[in-house]
């Protein structure tokens, strides 16, 4: 307890406890809320706070990437996709029976315990690509990324290109027609399938 209070009054300790408390609450709302908009906004703010963890840990470049990619791109993509779905409606979910939840929860808890209790030889871990003193994090990351991890980096770039094309093709089909009108005509179900066959 004294240890906790002592660490609370350092900058790192205070920031750590604040961020962890807030992210846990926000992600709990994300998981438990029945409203899509609440879930999405709490997820976005939780991701902003997670970038705070990265800044405390000295991973400046990772924090900036988290802010730009997750909060800027992924959440914007979600909110654009939200325009296709009826976002204001409460989501009604039929929850599974208690026995299934009990068994699945018990099994995953057991798996987590086994994973964390597994013997880790933490003393024998050696830094493969150590950080350099007096060099900024972004420069360090850049040097390692463009020498040791160049091939995975290029493969990731190719994967993002493929994902972009796939997203455009999947979402862009029949984009000129309104979804609700298609529902009224009750023809939306067949049209997409027939259009696929024509091609």
């Amino acid at each position: 307890m004294e240890n906790f209070l002592a660490s609370l009054f350092t900058f790192q300790g205070f920031a750590f406890y604040l961020f962890s408390f807030l992210t846990i609450i926000l992600f709990w709302i994300t998981v438990m809320s029945n409203n899509v908009l609440y879930a999405m906004t709490s997820l976005a703010s939780g991701m902003v706070l997670i970038s705070g963890f990265f800044f405390i840990l000295g991973a400046d470049f990772l924090g900036v990437v988290q802010l730009i990619v997750y909060v800027g791109a992924v959440m914007a993509l979600y909110s654009f996709a939200m325009m296709f779905f009826d976002a204001t409606r409460e989501i009604k979910e039929k929850n599974t029976s208690g026995a299934v939840v009990f068994v699945l929860g018990g099994l995953s808890a057991l798996m987590l315990v086994l994973m964390f209790a597994a013997p880790i030889h933490s003393e024998s871990i050696q830094a493969l690509y150590p950080m350099h003193e007096g060099v900024g994090n972004a420069q360090d990351v850049g040097i390692v990324l463009f020498t040791k991890y160049l091939v995975p980096f290029e493969v990731a770039a190719l994967m993002l290109l493929v994902a972009m094309i796939a997203g455009i093709i999947l979402a862009g089909k029949k984009m000129d027609q309104s979804l609700t009108e298609m529902m009224d005509e009750d023809a939306g179900e067949d049209e997409i399938l027939t259009q696929k066959d024509e091609k």
């Binding site: 470049f61 990772l62 791109a73 994967m159 993002l160 994902a163 796939a166």
Partner: peptide, 25 residues
């Protein structure tokens, strides 16, 4: 004091971004 962890986190972010793009489509 090792940069490998950050590298893996970058690739996780890249995979998450492409997963979201395809998944939302």
């Amino acid at each position: 004091n090792d940069l490998s962890g950050q590298m893996f986190a970058f690739f996780v972010i890249a995979i998450a971004a492409s997963e979201v793009a395809v998944g939302l489509g």
